[in-house]
Simulated assay, not measured.
Amino acid sequence: MVDYGYNNQYSTSTSYGANGAADGGGFVAGEPQSSPAGGKGGYGKDTVRPVTIKQILDAQQPHPDADFRADGEPFGQVTFIGQIRSISTQPTNITYKVDDGTGIVEVKQWIDSDANPDKMDLESSKPRLVEDGYCRVWGKLKAFNNKRHVGAHIIRPITDYNEINYHLLEATAVHLFFTRGPPTAQANGQKTGDTNGAAVSRQEFTSATDGALSNVSPLARRVFNTLKNSAQSNEGLHVQMVASQMGMPVSEVYKGAEELLSLGIIFTTVDDNTWAVLEA
């Protein structure tokens, strides 16, 4: 894990598999400072931040020379995971179009014309980046002619698909820290009030859900069980995470989810592709 520069429980070593970077060195973690949620910027802009592509596209930049900001905090280096939609090779660079389900961004990796032949032979023996394959990107967000791209220090294929889930959860945790502050303990045994102010117990919700589930397809039931039993934040799970957990295509997950959404068993949270179980 990377030290993101806030009072954290993470270690300061990078566990993503990147030992240094092209384009002049690795990532430097900022020193822990006061909580950003308390109004002071504790996020060092030179740290590497896990993000979704939507966060990249929505990042604010007051003027061309200003730092990009997400959740009000500046950042320089980013890391994200996505599926390669296309690969375009030019004499000086390779451009990848990467899609993570929240958006698409171009990733440019410059070709090192002075690379050692022995190193090139070693690189050729490693897993290769291919269209429709998943990749991990580390790099710097840049803008040119009002179009954003990421200049990649490192881009490598994903060999363990659990890394997709880990990344999305990590990006969510950092986002929640900056928008809501440090996590706090939730009271046990909370009850949800109905429109008349009467307390409705979690058990009653479960009973109602069980009744609705009796009318859904086996596929929808599998999607429900995955959403209910998988570790997640209070924002639920993204469709890509559900598909990875189930080992199924995203298109099939959408079919099951549509049944559950129409019955009000699950609901959308941060976007149309992220869902949570109503009882939770």
Score class of each variant (00 low, 15 high):
Gly151Asn: 10
Glu163Ser: 12
Val137Met: 00
Ile158Asp: 09
His149Ala: 13
Trp138Phe: 12
Ala152Ser: 03
Leu169Thr: 09
Tyr166Asp: 15
Asn145Pro: 07
Ala173Tyr: 11
Ile164Gln: 08
Ala171Gln: 01
Ala143His: 13
Val150Asp: 02
Ala143Met: 13
Thr172Pro: 05
Pro157Trp: 01
Ile158Cys: 12
Glu163Leu: 09
Ile158Phe: 08
Asn162Tyr: 13
His149Arg: 15
His167Ala: 11
Asp160Trp: 01
His153Pro: 08
Asn165Gln: 14
Ile155Gly: 02
Lys147Phe: 14
Ala152Arg: 04
Lys142Trp: 13
Asn165Tyr: 13
Thr172Arg: 05
His153Thr: 05
Asn145Lys: 09
Ala143Leu: 15
Ala171Lys: 04
Glu170Met: 07
Leu168Lys: 08
Val137Asp: 00
Ala173Ile: 10
Glu170Asn: 12
Ile154Ala: 01
Val174Gln: 06
Ala171Met: 01
Ile164Pro: 05
Gly139Met: 02
Leu141Tyr: 02
Lys147Cys: 12
Ile158Thr: 07
Lys140Met: 11
Leu141Ile: 06
Asn165Val: 10
Ala171Phe: 03
Ile158Trp: 04
Arg156Pro: 02
Phe144His: 15
Leu141Gln: 03
His153Asp: 04
Asn162Thr: 05
Asn146Val: 14
Glu170Gln: 14
Arg148Tyr: 08
Lys147Glu: 09
Ile164Thr: 04
Arg156Cys: 03
Ala171Thr: 02
Thr172Tyr: 06
Leu141Gly: 04
Leu169Asn: 14
Asn165Cys: 11
Val150Thr: 01
Val137Cys: 03
Gly151Asp: 08
Thr159His: 01
Leu141Glu: 03
Ala152His: 02
Arg156Gln: 08
Asn165Thr: 13
His149Val: 06
His167Ser: 14
Leu141His: 07
Val150Gln: 02
Asn165Ala: 11
Tyr161Ile: 03
Val150Pro: 02
Arg156Leu: 00
His167Thr: 06
Ile155Glu: 03
Thr172Asp: 10
Leu169Gly: 11
Val150Tyr: 01
Ala173Ser: 11
Lys140Cys: 10
Ala173Pro: 07
Asn162Phe: 11
Tyr161His: 12
His153Ser: 06
Val174Ile: 15
Asn145Cys: 08
Gly151Leu: 10
Ile154Asp: 00
His153Lys: 10
Lys140Asn: 14
Gly151Phe: 05
Ala152Tyr: 01
Ala173Asn: 14
Asp160Glu: 05
His149Ile: 07
Pro157Gly: 03
Ala173Gly: 11
Ile154Cys: 00
Asp160Tyr: 01
Ala171His: 00
Asn165Trp: 10
